[in-house]
Design a binder for these strands. Structure first.
Lengths: 229, 229
DNA sequence: CGACGATTTGAATAGGATCAATGGGAGTGG
DNA sequence: CCACTCCCATTGATCCTATTCAAATCGTCG
């Protein structure tokens, strides 16, 4: 790992409280690597070799069963993924691939497990990370079970709109196929869902969306901090 | 908490590695309490007061949004719930109620958080518990997004069948309304799903189910250790 | 220009939900 | 012991949501 990348990683919530020596140990064992888009990094069912930290780019984690495929989550900097599998030394439950050119820190799973035993502050940071992930998965499950596809889309739009500054417009940062999979629907259904939202002031032009009737859209979406928080 | 209940709790994965003094501290602050059926213990949105440990009975955790309601999970001894909310001191994401007469150990949330700072072995046990929960939620999300209602039911039946000894029959230990909510469908749909499974050797008599064509049922269900494990 | 992949649109179908009505115990009170 | 009631479960009819399969359209890039 290049020296100039170290400070960025050091500031991650997961590492910030660690003793310097322990952090150095972890980093020495780790690889910081670049990947082109559409590279599959992990495969569901495999044993975890590394904990991944996204330094740059974005990662889609997805799962298959029967002949269906769905997106579980999309990660951006700075986040880790497959932490639970690494800690339990249990098979990955999902596959993961880069969506764009990405830089990832790969820390050998065994080092993570050892370090958790050695560094109590690291263990506590892991607890916070895991608890956050757990809650995030509960929210995703609620989103899926308690809302229709249109409602999920409406809430996704509102959330992106807010994260992008609430200026009345937003730009989708993933392509529509991936968005459809994330929202638990087919690309065709997503396309129709967008059309259904037109009367609610949702104007779609490629990846750009303008929102002209925010109130109407919110009335439809009924955002809920216990799902979208 | 009664002295004779202490050993049971002491053996929980969460506590078994703790120093004796620390365990005593936690237990002294805790309440072991009985509840009748259908008592709502926690409400989504509330701040976490306690970590709950089910010593006896069963608990349904569920969530609402719009005017819908769904079951997230059902817990039996010996398990904890709302651990993530307690650790993050963040609002419960789900409500919880007893399904039957139950005994619960209630440990004040603040004591859990303090003890995690003090007892490194406890922190590690929490990590394992959280990682297991996280994986369980991922599986639930995959189950919901990658399977139809009938497939979810078929897999639920196969899993119960196995847990009850694989003797060609099983007994539902929750009523069908609750099962329907757990599987993400209405009671009507569940009833029809059972009917659909009849040609696959699923004979339902009230809560009792006999399975006469296990192979056919498995071919339909396509159980997957990365979902049902 | 031409090809390819992504998106949209159309038509038909499937999976579930909703609303309504019926059947079937378990428990209650006469 | 027998109605009676209530709640759960089932069944029927219909509607809605979303998927599937197919075709058209759009944009981008070589």
């Amino acid at each position: 790992m290049r020296p100039r990348d170290v400070p960025v990683v050091r500031e991650l919530a997961l590492f910030v409280g660690m003793e310097e020596a322990n952090f150095a140990t972890l980093v020495n064992a780790a690889y910081l690597q670049r990947f082109p888009p559409q590279v599959q990094l992990i495969t569901e069912g495999d044993s975890p070799d590394f904990l991944y930290v996204i330094v740059e780019g974005s990662i889609e984690v997805f799962a298959r069963s029967n002949r269906r495929r769905t997106t579980i989550d999309i990660f951006r900097p700075v986040a880790t993924f497959v932490l639970a599998a690494v800690l339990m030394d249990a098979p990955y439950l999902m596959s993961g691939q880069t969506l764009e050119r990405s830089r990832l820190l790969m820390i050998p799973a065994e080092d993570i497990r050892l370090m958790m035993e050695q560094d109590a502050e690291f263990a506590r940071a892991i607890v916070r990370e895991l608890a956050t992930r757990d809650r995030s998965m509960i929210k995703a499950l609620k989103n899926q079970k308690l809302r229709t596809g249109i409602e999920r889309l409406a809430n996704y739009i509102l959330r992106e709109h807010e994260e992008q500054g609430s200026h009345g417009s937003l730009t989708l940062c993933i392509d529509k196929q991936t968005l459809a999979a994330l929202l638990g629907m087919t690309p065709e259904s997503l396309s129709r869902a967008f059309a259904t939202l037109a009367p609610y002031g949702v104007d779609v032009h490629g990846p750009d969306i303008r929102l002209s009737k925010l109130d109407d859209l919110e009335r439809l979406a009924k955002p809920n901090t216990l799902i979208d928080g």
